[in-house]
């Protein structure tokens, strides 16, 4: 395998690109300079850290180490998905639900693929499990966050309408159905757009990376197709699970709106 190596000083040149964005932010008074700067630094620090962590992990090749990393990623994804919500019962109540919803989505996407499609040898090989697992968790995180955000916002802004559905004899499922549909559609559309435009508009990062590091494009493409299909099922399963949890948090057992 041969590829162009990036020494640190050339990484510094790339960082200047963020500088351009900072200058534009200042000129347009977006007040995002601090966020941009901190974000750029965080991204570099986090990625360098995970780089070293992965090197250790791949060297160790121990299932406990691999799954410990995956577990931390899972936890961070769950926490992140509940953190910025403006409505709803708050992170403490939502976190376990997000954790399960993300876990369900990732489980359904990962297990069959690692069993039958890309079986790593050994089965816990970090080089496969961590990056693909990470992509699934991150996609599930975004879907769960969006479904929670939209449903809890609807429960608040549409409380009067929801209550009238209930008064007309709707079950909580029936009352929430239009909002659930809208939330799930909105959460799934980016993934579907990804399916439709991939190869035409975007060359996905994983595929690009594999090609850059010397993988045959044909194989890199197959990996990417698998991942895209996984992303679809992740979004669907995590989204439906999140919607179902949200419903239970929005209504009481007596089919009343929680206040």
């Amino acid at each position: 395998m041969s590829y162009v190596e990036i020494p640190l000083w050339r990484l510094g040149i790339a960082a200047l690109l963020v500088g351009v964005a900072v200058l534009l932010s200042r000129a347009a008074r977006l007040e995002l300079e601090k966020d941009l700067g901190l974000g750029a630094i965080r991204a570099a620090v986090q990625l360098v850290a995970i780089g070293y962590a992965l090197r250790l992990l791949f060297a160790a090749e121990h299932p406990v180490a691999v799954f410990a990393v995956l577990f931390v990623m899972w936890l961070v994804a769950a926490w992140t998905s509940t953190r910025r919500l403006k409505h709803g019962p708050g992170t403490r109540v939502l976190l376990p639900h997000a954790f399960v919803a993300i876990g369900l989505g990732a489980f359904v996407a990962l297990v069959p693929v690692f069993l039958f499609v890309i079986p790593p040898r050994p089965w816990f090989e970090g080089r496969y499990v961590i990056p693909i697992g990470g992509m699934m968790l991150s996609s599930a995180m975004n879907v769960v966050a969006q479904v929670f955000e939209r449903l809890f916002a609807s429960a608040r802004t549409e409380a009067a309408t929801l209550e009238q559905y209930l008064a007309l004899g709707a079950t909580p499922e029936q009352a929430l159905a239009p909002y659930r549909r809208a939330a799930l559609r909105a959460a799934l559309i980016p993934t579907i757009n990804g399916l439709v435009t991939v190869g035409l508009v975007s060359l996905p990062g994983m595929m690009t990376g594999q090609i850059l590091s010397g993988t045959e494009p044909e194989q890199a493409v197959r990996y990417q197709v698998v991942v895209m299909y996984q992303l679809v099922v992740v979004a669907a399963v995590a989204g439906v699970a999140a919607a179902s949890f949200a419903r239970r948090l929005i209504f009481t057992g007596d089919a009343q709106l929680r206040t």
Partner: peptide
């Protein structure tokens, strides 16, 4: 409670109309 609410109907002050036609609203319950 679902069955009960069909037999004991409640109409709030300033009721919300659902999206759709009047006929669709009447058909809701």
């Amino acid at each position: 409670v679902i069955e009960y609410r069909r037999r004991v109907a409640y109409v709030p002050q300033l009721p919300q109309m659902f999206e759709g036609t009047v006929a669709e609203n009447v058909r809701t319950g």
